[in-house]
Design a protein around this nucleic acid. Structure first.
Lengths: 212, 212
DNA sequence: AAGCCGCTGTCAATTCATTGACATAATTTT
DNA sequence: AAAATTATGTCAATGAATTGACAGCGGCTT
């Protein structure tokens, strides 16, 4: 089904297209040209056409793109046309924050379970979901068709947990722990390294000072 | 002081070097070659040398790099040798999670204030910091030498708040709202679009299915 | 102390990403 | 219905990032 390998650079831009198209759709706009999108999104029209053509010809010459159609197509490309079952590992502040963020569910990312190593926390309910002890995790993943595990645990335990998850057949890991996981290559890892992001901001603040 | 403009691609890799050097340092290792780092970090030795040389010659031929020295230098480049004063705008789950994450403070990012538009939440204390109403924000930023504002508010209000912050002289915005901010170019914006990250993971899960 | 070896800094080559240009096809106007 | 306009898909050109290669310096060995 997939012809050529799409670069992660391109993939990284798809969610942004998706977001802007969603906004246009909500405004009731039915049609958009790459030039119009270019003006709104501040990227070149050429890049937009190039990116979209990696996945097929969604537009029509002389007309442009149909907003609703393109929105749906990008949604499918991103795998949003079907549901994903998630677990959270680590019921700390960040884990709880993610569970409480309802927008993920709206896109079909459903939190099915929460796990924590602290017995004090186990049994507690977060948005209706009971926190379970770690030793129940592997069975839960297998029995509930879990795709994605969200790691919101300290880096010291992340490596070990990732191994367990790999062992019980997880497909993807959304990793908030500040460590690079080594897992079999059929498992996808998406890192969110918050402190890296903050350091990048810090760098850009400092570097600006000397430019004027 | 700054000679040539450093690409964001390179800047984005610095925190990772910093992290690995910190680990080597903690292990008591004093010296490392680009080849050794290459093996550990899974990037080419050439890239490491190329990246570091953007900022100066930190190594010595025939010896390699002194871990402690290089760690400190990269820290300085990233602006971690001095403190940053932060405010959180939006005292929801995510805002609270960030305040409670102590590692930022350890790196000199100090949370000085929290703001929220909800009067019910104002007055509450989070890790010793009182939540203040939005109308006090501008004065607070000016009077407390605030560098960075962390936006953990819904996208609907983010644009407006960013304008206010620009007006009262903020230097950087760490933006968790799912919207692209338009601010004067002297203000640095670092986006953390969590749902974009999750969609990227979702894409990579789907695309893998057809490869085997 | 002299020579060998290791490893950086840097230049050149290659690969990857972005931008520009245009033939062509569909739409809209007259 | 024909002409004029619009805007895609794609190819070519440019630009950026990564990798490879090596001269030369400094530490290490004997």
């Amino acid at each position: 089904m997939e012809e050529k390998e799409i670069s992660q650079t391109v993939v990284g831009r798809l969610p942004r297209y998706f977001r802007y198209l969603g906004e246009l759709k909500d405004e009731g706009i039915e049609r958009v040209s790459s030039q119009e999108l270019s003006d709104i999104m501040q990227v070149t029209a050429s890049q937009i056409r190039q990116d979209l053509n990696n996945f097929g010809g969604f537009g029509q010459q002389g007309y442009g793109y149909n907003v609703g159609f393109l929105y749906d197509e990008i949604g499918k490309i991103l795998g949003l046309h079907r549901e994903h079952n998630l677990i959270i590992v680590g019921a700390g502040h960040l884990g709880q924050a993610l569970v409480n963020y309802t927008n993920f569910e709206r896109r079909g990312f459903l939190f099915r379970g929460i796990f924590d190593r602290d017995p004090q926390v186990c049994g507690k309910k977060i948005r209706g979901i009971t926190v379970r002890p770690m030793n129940e995790m592997e069975a839960f993943v297998r029995e509930n068709d879990i795709d994605i595990a969200v790691l919101t645990i300290p880096k010291t335990s992340a490596v070990e947990v990732a191994e367990q998850l790999a062992y019980c057949g997880i497909k993807g890991i959304w990793n908030f722990a500040h460590v690079d996981l080594r897992v079999p290559e059929q498992i996808q890892v998406e890192n969110v390294h918050l402190s890296d992001s903050l350091m990048k901001l810090s760098y850009n603040l400092s570097s600006r000072e000397y430019e004027e």
